[in-house]
Design a protein around this nucleic acid. Structure first.
Length: 704
DNA sequence: TTAAATGTAATTTTT
DNA sequence: TTACATTTAA
């Protein structure tokens, strides 16, 4: 059936028809990436006679997985149910729920989220009587576990002191953390992937089985894979990989979470026989917007050459507004929004969450409904987490972190000192905190409240087995007087609303997915930050969010605000070249969200932590040819009076050379200047890599 | 045990 | 400035 191809452009068709072997699809922003993957999967089934039960598609978010699945159902019908479409983590959970015991997991293991991890880490620090702040240790844990190379590799590279303690002590923190996780029957997000790797490596027969279920593999957003996901992908793909990775190095913005852009850049080295397909036709944005996007991203060195080509004709010029201060910038946005109307299609994007405040304030004042995305995720609200903690303890009483969380929530006279005594006892006796609770009689002089709590828990444990999630939560609410306690608190009404929202979410889940309480918890753990429940969000509103949150979305009108040095690029990203390029990609991602209308703005003065700061326009604005920008005045359309051009940084930091220039080096040959600072230039030499060179000695020759 | 007071640090955050 | 976490007082 040719209709799978007829609506696609030639590059998309090539991707869809690709059959066996590795392939890299470099999919520019708005190039119909998902569409291509979906068609490819359908094509595999229809034309290549591949069973849906042999196809795996990995995405990074549940939202993406859900969308892909939905489109596939529409395209190929109910067979799509047999396809395996999941996030890395969800796929891992599915595997570990079956084979987890092979790698030492107990059947009812729970997944610890970020809060739980932090709480556990704090306990470990306390146990070791370290006064140190958890921050540096948290970073250490993430680093070790994101790379998956183990502790020893980390210790070789680590500085001598971590968080003020010798790194050998820090190593002990790591050990204890891991041990504590396991003894509580818990895993963190990284463990899900690491243990799956361990499972595959130690049990080839399991790997073989899973491979049968994944003969054709797709990995979406490949530029965002971290080293562990990379290894997992390679393991799964095996010797003769039918592996199609899809992504865009120019949209790699999660380096700080250990995503390694090199994974996609190196793909053709990993798989020399790989076919490379570039999707460069853009169906989203008008020509002027794409011209700006191309001009910006072209200055990066760490990328695969690619130019977005418009398919839309015409379009308004990109506007630039220079505001005297951040307030005026926000006021400008609000005025323009009011003038445009149609709030639904408008987004205001910024680098840091702190910027949202002013914007929200001014928009609200102008009577504009606002949807703030991503501040505090629904499942992260305290009262919601409290209720979930009951469920997690009921499923797995060994979970000390969540046990601590609920023991006095709502208050029942079991405070920190009581829990401390019980924890000491647990430690000495080598039992779990829960078991210590059960022995309260021997530990406490007034064990009554604790014993009553234990009794409650025992009822809940039974309920966890027998009841549906909704019934379980009802029972918790009933038995603990949760609602009544909430009502007493400030913001009680809102918190109660959230509780009701959780019940509704559980009810929806029962209808759509169905399953045990434990399965519900998995699903919550894996979707955590995701979508806001429908309840509160106004239907028609302007969307406010960070650039990171905007990835994958599109809006007819986009405001990109705060385009200033120290904000974008952020001050913490100025010193390292890779970070600076990531900041540029962030800008690029922002630009490419816009379909028809794009506003760029910066303020000459902004308050940071209550201090007034004078700012300079972002260096990225310099990358945009003047003729592509239309400078507007405070009231919109009128071209601004004579204005300063998007100003240059105060002093030229470079001598002669400038980012983007082509040069020749006597030894490394031709390259592109990535950055120039003082006496030093950094040059990307294709095939050689990045080199930092001293201007005086390098003997660089400018090519034009 | 809880509430007020003080100190401190402040990017981004798919799972 | 403000959000939070820990300390201190009631």
């Amino acid at each position: 059936m040719s209709d799978l191809l007829s609506t696609l452009n030639p590059a998309q068709q090539e991707a869809v028809r690709h059959f066996e072997g590795p392939a890299l699809v470099v999919a520019g922003a708005g190039s119909g990436k998902t569409r291509t993957v979906v068609h490819r999967i359908a094509y595999l089934m229809r034309e290549r006679r591949v069973y849906p039960s042999e196809i795996l598609a990995v995405t990074f978010t549940n939202k993406a997985a859900g969308e892909m699945k939905e489109r596939l159902v529409r395209m190929v019908g109910p067979q799509a149910k047999e396809l395996w479409v999941a996030t890395f983590h969800a796929a891992a959970v599915r595997i570990l729920r079956v084979y987890g015991e092979y790698v030492g997991l107990r059947p009812g293991f729970v997944i610890y989220d970020e809060d739980d991890q932090n709480a556990l880490l704090k306990e470990v620090l306390k146990e070791l009587e370290l006064e140190a702040k958890p921050g540096p240790f948290r970073a250490m844990l993430d680093r070790i576990k994101n790379r998956g190379e183990g502790l020893s590799a980390f210790l070789k590279e680590a500085p001598d002191y971590i968080g003020g303690v010798p790194k050998e002590v820090a190593a002990e923190v790591y050990h204890r953390y891991q041990k504590a996780l396991r003894s509580q029957g818990a895993v963190d997000f990284n463990d899900l992937l690491l243990l799956t790797i361990e499972l595959f490596e130690g049990h080839p027969e399991v790997l073989r089985k899973v491979r049968q279920r994944a003969r054709f593999i797709h990995v979406d957003e490949y530029q965002d894979t971290n080293p562990v996901q990379y290894r997992l992908t390679r393991l799964l793909a095996g010797e003769k990989p039918n592996l199609m990775v899809v992504g865009d190095p120019d949209q790699s913005i999660y380096g700080f979470r250990a995503a390694d852009i090199q994974n996609i850049l190196r793909f053709t080295q990993d798989y020399p026989e790989a076919r490379v397909i570039r999707l460069e036709e853009n169906y989203r944005s008008s020509r002027p917007i794409l011209q700006v996007a191309n001009a910006v991203i072209e200055k990066n060195a760490l990328r695969l050459e690619k130019v977005l080509r418009p398919t839309k004709e015409g379009g308004e010029p990109v506007r630039l507004y220079r505001a005297p201060n951040a307030r005026e910038e926000a006021a400008f946005v609000a005025r323009e929004v009011v003038r445009l109307g149609g709030y639904q299609g408008i987004a205001v994007l910024y680098r840091t969450n702190a910027q949202s405040r002013l914007l929200e304030e001014h928009l609200r004042r102008a009577g504009v409904p606002v949807r703030l995305v991503g501040a505090v995720g629904f499942f992260e609200r305290r009262e919601v987490k409290d209720l979930l903690a009951y469920a997690r303890v009921a499923v797995n009483p060994a979970d000390g972190i969540n046990l601590r969380r609920i023991v006095n929530t709502p208050p029942r006279g079991v405070g920190a000192s009581t829990v401390g005594k019980l924890a000491d006892y647990a430690q000495k006796a080598g039992v779990s905190l829960y078991e210590a609770f059960c022995s309260a009689q021997q530990v406490l002089s007034r064990p009554q409240p604790v014993l009553a709590f234990v009794e409650l828990l025992q009822e809940l444990m039974e309920a966890a087995f027998e009841s549906s999630p909704v019934a379980f939560f009802e029972q918790v609410l009933e038995a603990t007087g949760f609602r009544e306690a909430l009502r007493e608190e400030p913001d009680g009404e809102e918190r109660l609303q959230n509780v009701e929202e959780l019940l509704r979410a559980a009810r929806d889940w029962e209808v759509e997915e169905g399953g045990s309480l434990s399965e519900f918890l998995d699903s919550v753990a894996l979707t955590a930050r995701a979508e806001e429940p429908q309840g509160q969000a106004p239907a028609e509103a302007v969307t406010l969010m960070t650039l990171h949150n905007a990835k994958g979305l599109e809006f007819p009108t986009v405001f990109l605000v705060g385009l200033e040095e120290n904000l974008l690029p952020h001050r913490n990203s100025l010193s390292r070249l890779e970070d600076l390029e990531e900041e540029r990609r962030l800008f690029y991602v922002g630009i490419t969200r816009a379909q028809e209308r794009l506003y760029l703005s910066y303020a000459e003065e902004r308050e940071t932590y209550g201090r007034r700061e004078y700012t300079r326009p972002s260096r990225f604005l310099e990358d945009i040819p003047r003729e592509l920008l239309w400078e507007v005045g405070a009231f919109g359309e009128a071209p601004a009076p004579p204005s300063h051009p998007p100003a240059k940084p105060e002093k030229a930091l470079h001598q002669g050379f400038k980012g983007g220039e082509k040069v020749r080096h006597p030894k490394f040959g031709q390259g592109t200047v990535v950055a120039a600072m003082g006496e030093e230039v950094t040059v990307m030499f294709p095939g050689v890599g990045l080199k930092r060179l001293a201007l005086r000695f390098a003997g660089l020759e400018r090519l034009e």
